[in-house]
Design a protein around this nucleic acid. Sequence first.
DNA 1: AAGAGATTTATTTTT
DNA 2: TAAATCTCTT
Length: 756
Amino acid sequence: MARQLTDLLSGLNDAQREAVTAVDGPILVVAGPGSGKTRVLTHRIAYLIEERGVGPDEILAVTFTNKAAREMRDRIERLLGRSAEGLVMGTFHSFGVRLLRQNPGLVADRLGILPNFLIYDDADQVEVAKRAIVAVGLDPKQLAPRRMLSRISAAKSLLVSPEEFAQQTETYDDEVVARVYREYQRTLRKANAVDFDDLLALPIQLFDEAPASLARYQERFRYILVDEYQDTNRVQYVLVSALAARHRNLFVVGDPDQSIYGWRQADIRNILDFEKDYPDAKRIHLELNYRSTRRIVDTADRVIRENTQRIDRRLRTENDDGEMVAVRELADQNHEAQFIVGEIRRLVRTGNLSGDDFAIMYRTTAQSRVLEEAFRVSDIPYRIVGGVRFYDRKEVKDVLAVLRLLHNPADDVSLGRIIDNFPLGRGFGPRALDTVSAWAAQNGVPTLEGFLSLAPGARPPAPPPQLSGSAKTAAQRLGTVFARLQEEAGQLTLASLFDAVVERTGYKESFDHDKEEEMQRYANVMELRADLEKYDLLEPEDALPTYLEQVALVADVDAMDDDGRGRVTLITLHSAKGLEFPVVFIAGVEEGLLPISRAIEAEFHDPLPMEEERRLFYVGITRAKKLLYITYAGSRVTYGRFQSSVPSRFLANIPDECVRSLGRRPFDRDRSAGRLQDRVRVGLEPARSTAPVPTPAAWRPTASYQPAQRVFHPKFGEGVITDVTNRGGDQELAITFARHGAKRLIASLAQLDLIS
DNA sequence: AAGAGATTTATTTTT
DNA sequence: TAAATCTCTT
């Protein structure tokens, strides 16, 4: 016992030790980046179990991603030297599902949601929103379903029901949202489906309806821990508060400076007001950074210091100074990607580093394209976190739609998908679907029943829908196939069910074996089969629901740890939160990208989005342990158009002592938008319009090229200069490109970059 | 109802 | 630029 105690507490600093051993009552830990908060969380849980005799099943720990939960559980089990069975650890959303699954009777009775409910993902939600817009007699083309959805989601995150929303409308637009919201919710329920926000809101409704069930959980969870508390929203706050009300042993960890989910209704006040909610709370600060070099820490500190909405504190470290932060301007996004690939190659060669030591971070997923292309040709292994998830690929979603419909016959969104995309639905158009839907509505049954009623041997509740011609044939075919699949669904393993699905729906044959692209998509479908096989170990009746739930709740980062070894990571700044890498590149640090244009537009009436952008940059900087590169391009192609860009204002705050410019031109702080801002503030110039946006020709270095130099051209790629002819102040270059052969180019016009 | 061809839209971030 | 959506023809 004593041995273990020293193990659990050794190597912790005073503040960390205090956080681990302060057992009872509300505790707020404000933890800067790299200050060991994961260590504190894991050691604290192990300490509770080992030293305080707390049962693992009396502890609830909420993390931001499933990956974090998995890793923490592993670390705890390693500390304990045994399994931590019973410990409830996961994201808010997975915990929400768990609550709903554990109370099927109450959930059905009080909330009207049957146990076979599905979790609708983003695309499904858009579809439901569209249908809702149509149903209230409006036009989805004018209303932007996505915008409706974000308003609805915001309302749900604030626990505002459709009825409450309707009562507090102020503008015409609000009224429209209210109507769509109501219909959206009705459509979801009719499909026996829930969305992400419901996973948090429904447990609260359940507790309202059945206080005894709340009391049970309150009693059970003597200790509750919440990570990334700065990113919790209202629903999450209410849920945690309710659960912690009985024992009040609530331990929250967060960093207001890393709050980057304001757009998801994350409310920084949850952490700032913690001590108001719990006047007896103990507050512990973890400030010393163990992760990064001194220069990286100082850079981060100076950048975040510019924010006004924050608690003043200083980030510090006792680590070595380390290398300078490298800032590099590139001609365009291709050069930027090329530069990054080149640097990585160089560092791998000379610096004893491997691919997985590197991460490239960017603000928007669109930026990953060019980077990915550069890595693809470079043959450096890489992986992309974010972008299109495996489960979001069209062909995968198609097959999943069938499985979902088999699990939940009310799932009209999946039914629609099947009709649109499967050979099975051929000959069956929108008008015919209207007929069947109307029939189903009339009889109060799911739309699928309309099809089943046409299958041979069916005993429908009413005369089947009136169809004719190709629509009738198609509907009969679909009904017959589904009737049979439904029978088999309970008996077959998932893999065999998969086989039956792709065979009988004609999906398998729909791939053209002569087209490479289609074969790739077919390969994805088969990968789904391999995925399904893993679930055949479960009880047959659990396999499908467990699988579908897992599919709905995996985040991009969750899927990350599979075969990440040796690969460079390409990741959005948002997804990078909580991760660390020896070498980090932050790409596209330009006005309009980081900060994102919308934050710039909003700045004059609302400074908060801009501050969030700055925090995002801060999150990126603090991911780096040893080396940090910041790159920006002088111009980039957006929507297929060239646009020149201005270095981000955030660059102006990096201290001279920490930064060095790479390349021929020094990094010119005065051209970054930060300095322009100053001028704007004193009223010398209007914003942006007169900003000295440099034209490419004007700022391109007038380097004199020489034969044998290696260069990079945005279109032609890598090449070697074979001949140089001087023409006045300019040069005409003969270049042999690796992939495009010999070209003659004018030095001042060709957007060339020297590569080492 | 289906496919070809024209046109228009999109890029903020995600559980 | 590429993907999604619309329009027109059969």
